[in-house]
Deep mutational scan, measured.
Amino acid sequence: DEIHIHFNGVTIEFRGLTEEAKKALEEAIKRGASEEELKELARRLIK
């Protein structure tokens, strides 16, 4: 299970995320999180 985020022309790929983690990332994107914020969020979620 993986998710691809297209962000300002950059694709960020995450693997092994739970549904909750995906929802958290989607919410962050909707509120306009920066690419760095998304990566940091993903790091926290994957652990």
Rank of each mutant, 00 (worst) to 15 (best):
N8V: 02
T11C: 12
E40Y: 03
H6C: 10
R15P: 15
F7V: 15
E20A: 12
F14S: 06
G32T: 02
S34T: 12
S34A: 06
E13C: 11
A42L: 13
A24W: 08
T18S: 11
K22N: 03
L25V: 13
I5E: 01
K22I: 13
E35N: 06
G9M: 00
I12A: 00
K30F: 09
K39C: 15
L45V: 07
R31W: 10
A24Q: 12
R15M: 13
R43F: 08
L45K: 01
E27I: 08
I5G: 02
E26I: 14
V10S: 08
E26G: 07
K30N: 11
I29S: 03
K22S: 05
N8I: 02
E2T: 15
K23Q: 12
R43T: 14
A28E: 07
F7I: 15
A21K: 04
E19K: 07
E26R: 11
A28R: 04
H6I: 12
I12W: 01
L41M: 09
V10G: 06
T18L: 03
K23R: 11
L45A: 04
D1S: 14
F7D: 02
E27N: 13
I3Q: 05
G9K: 01
H4F: 06
K47Y: 04
F14H: 04
E20H: 09
D1E: 11
L17F: 07
I5H: 02
K22W: 13
E36C: 05
K22T: 06
L45H: 07
F14D: 03
G9Q: 01
E37F: 12
A21L: 07
A42V: 13
G16Q: 09
L41H: 02
K30Q: 09
E40D: 11
I3K: 03
F7A: 05
R15S: 15
R15F: 15
E13R: 14
I29Q: 02
R44P: 01
A21I: 14
I12C: 03
E19F: 04
H4R: 05
E20Y: 06
L17S: 01
L38C: 03
K23G: 09
G16W: 10
H4V: 06
L41A: 03
I3S: 07
R44I: 13
I46A: 07
E36K: 07
R43S: 13
I12S: 00
R15H: 15
R31V: 09
K23H: 11
L17G: 04
F7H: 04
N8Q: 08
I5S: 00
E13W: 14
A33M: 12
K39W: 15
R31S: 12
K30V: 12
R44L: 11
F7Y: 05
K47P: 13
K39H: 11
E35W: 14
E35M: 15
S34L: 08
T11N: 02
A21F: 08
H4T: 12
L17K: 00
K23S: 10
K30E: 12
I5M: 05
E13K: 12
R44N: 11
K22M: 09
V10R: 03
E13F: 14
G16K: 07
E2W: 15
R15E: 15
T18Q: 06
I46S: 10
A33I: 14
K22G: 05
K39Q: 12
G32A: 04
I46T: 10
G9R: 00
D1R: 12
S34K: 07
L45R: 00
E35Q: 08
I5Y: 06
E35Y: 13
V10A: 05
K39Y: 15
V10L: 07
A33T: 11
S34N: 10
R43G: 13
A24M: 12
F7G: 02
E20N: 07
K30L: 08
A33N: 03
E35G: 11
E26N: 10
I46F: 03
E27R: 08
I46Q: 07
I5W: 06
E27D: 11
I3P: 05
R31N: 10
S34H: 06
N8L: 05
E13P: 00
G32N: 09
K39V: 15
T11R: 05
K30R: 09
A21Y: 04
E26H: 11
G9N: 03
E20Q: 10
G32F: 07
L41D: 00
E35K: 05
A21P: 01
A21R: 01
I5L: 12
K47L: 13
K47H: 11
R31Y: 13
A28I: 13
E13D: 14
E2L: 10
T18K: 05
H6T: 02
F7L: 15
S34D: 10
L38E: 00
F7S: 04
E37M: 12
E35A: 14
L25F: 12
G9C: 05
G16P: 05
E40L: 05
A28T: 04
A33Y: 08
N8D: 12
S34P: 05
E19G: 11
E27G: 07
E13S: 10
K39A: 12
T18I: 04
G32C: 09
K47F: 07
I12Q: 00
H6V: 06
E36Q: 11
E2K: 14
L17T: 01
K39G: 09
R43M: 14
L17M: 07
I12R: 00
E37A: 08
H4Y: 07
A33C: 10
R15D: 15
L17A: 06
A33P: 03
R43Q: 10
G9T: 01
K22Y: 09
E19V: 09
L38A: 01
R15V: 15
L45E: 02
A24K: 10
E2S: 15
E37L: 09
E27C: 11
E37V: 11
E27H: 10
L17D: 01
E35S: 09
E20S: 09
I46C: 13
E2N: 13
E19A: 10
E35L: 15
R43Y: 07
L41Q: 02
I29F: 09
L45M: 13
G9Y: 01
L41C: 04
E37N: 04
L45Q: 03
E19I: 09
E20F: 06
G32Y: 04
E27W: 05
A24H: 11
E36R: 08
S34R: 05
L41I: 10
A33W: 08
K22D: 01
R44C: 11
E2C: 15
S34E: 06
E19H: 10
T18V: 04
T11D: 08
I46R: 03
N8W: 02
E26A: 07
K30D: 09
A42E: 03
E26Y: 14
G32Q: 04
I3A: 06
F7E: 02
E13T: 08
G16Y: 13
G9W: 01
E40C: 04
H6D: 07
T11A: 02
A33V: 12
I12V: 06
A24Y: 08
L45Y: 08
